[in-house]
């Protein structure tokens, strides 16, 4: 019979294991804490650039988006989060009818951030940003129009 299996030995071994645990937590008691204080640290908070929090349309220097209303993002989307509404306008110079973007509607509340739309876009007209502060009181506020 090992000493640790005897009555006294058992007590001693058990106490030793408990004391080791106590020592460990005591050490942590005095180490600096790791908590990051959001929202106090909002100004300094760094989030990875690749983080996906919300879809947006980057604008070029003239303030226009690059969307050509091809609808590839809409068809790539697994759960119809994106709806691209188009309209036909007549080009004044050539007189031809052209399909352009009317409304780019994005439902933040059902997006699964799979990046398929961004991958599908031929013009890099959409991208994800890391602005994560999106909680709202009304479900309808999550359906947003990305273009102006």
């Amino acid at each position: 019979m090992k000493f640790s299996e005897t009555y006294i030995g058992g007590i001693l071994f058990a106490s030793a294991s408990l004391l080791t645990g106590l020592r460990t937590t005591l050490k942590e008691f005095f180490t600096p804490k790791v908590t990051e204080q959001y929202p106090e640290n909002r100004a300094t908070l760094k989030i990875s650039e690749r983080h996906r929090a919300m879809l947006y349309m980057p604008l070029d220097e003239n303030g226009n988006n690059k969307c050509i209303a091809c609808g590839l993002c809409q068809s790539a989307c697994p759960n119809s989060t994106i709806i691209v509404k188009t309209k036909n306008i007549v080009d004044e110079e050539s007189g031809k009818s052209k399909k352009v973007l009317d409304e780019y509607i994005y439902d933040l509340g059902s997006c699964m951030f799979c990046q398929l739309c961004v991958n599908a876009c031929p013009k890099d007209a959409i991208a994800f940003n890391n602005q994560f502060e999106n909680a709202v009181f009304d479900r309808k506020k999550l359906v947003i129009r990305l273009n102006k």
């Binding site: 937590t25 942590e28 008691f29 180490t31 804490k33 790791v34 908590t35 204080q37």
Partner: peptide, 11 residues
Amino acid sequence: CAAFQCRLGPT
């Protein structure tokens, strides 16, 4: 409890 768990507790 927070101090034992490397966090801050109510602040």
